[in-house]
């Protein structure tokens, strides 16, 4: 089926079978590779993108369900106030190790800070629970979200 996909502020005409996960359209068709494949079952969060501003797992979001939505990926976060603050905090604290999960971590963290400008450690743990990091950078992710909140507050 032909679909008009609104992604990062542009409309892309894509051809995909119904049931195709948004993840594979983003990665294989649009060649935006910042969004990662980790598990395929919405259990790790590496594929997190924003749908109308809210984090969703693109491996379990199907192409036929996103036609009227605005999709945003990690590649657009520099232009987003909250996204840029999270990226700055991640750089200050050197949150990343292998880095493969970090696009998803950042997309989810932006979703959290949009909802809750000053999350507690417990609120961060609750919201970020589904984003796995096999390098176990969690302590810096927690600190990074709190640092980003401070950057945004200033």
């Amino acid at each position: 089926m032909a679909i008009s996909l609104k992604l990062n502020g542009k409309t892309h005409e894509v051809e995909a079978e119904p049931g195709t996960p948004l993840l594979w359209v983003i990665r294989d068709e649009l060649k935006l590779t910042g969004t990662k494949f980790g598990c395929g079952v919405a259990s790790c969060g590496a594929c997190t993108v924003h749908m109308n501003g809210e984090p969703v797992r693109s491996c379990q979001t199907y192409i036929e369900d996103v036609e009227d939505a605005e999709i945003t990926t990690i590649e657009k976060m520099e232009e987003d106030k909250v996204g840029a603050a999270v990226q700055q905090a991640w750089l200050e604290l050197d949150v990343v190790q292998c880095g493969y999960c970090q696009s998803g971590q950042i997309m989810n963290a932006v979703g959290l800070l949009r909802e809750n400008a000053k999350p507690t450690a417990e609120e961060i743990d609750d919201y970020m629970y589904g984003n796995a990091c096999r390098c176990a950078t969690y302590q810096r992710i927690r600190a990074g979200v709190q640092r980003a909140a401070k950057i945004l507050e200033a």
Partner: peptide, 11 residues
């Protein structure tokens, strides 16, 4: 770090 926070890192 910079390429790993903006989606540009190439794995």
């Amino acid at each position: 770090s910079p390429i790993k926070v903006n989606g540009q890192a190439q794995f």
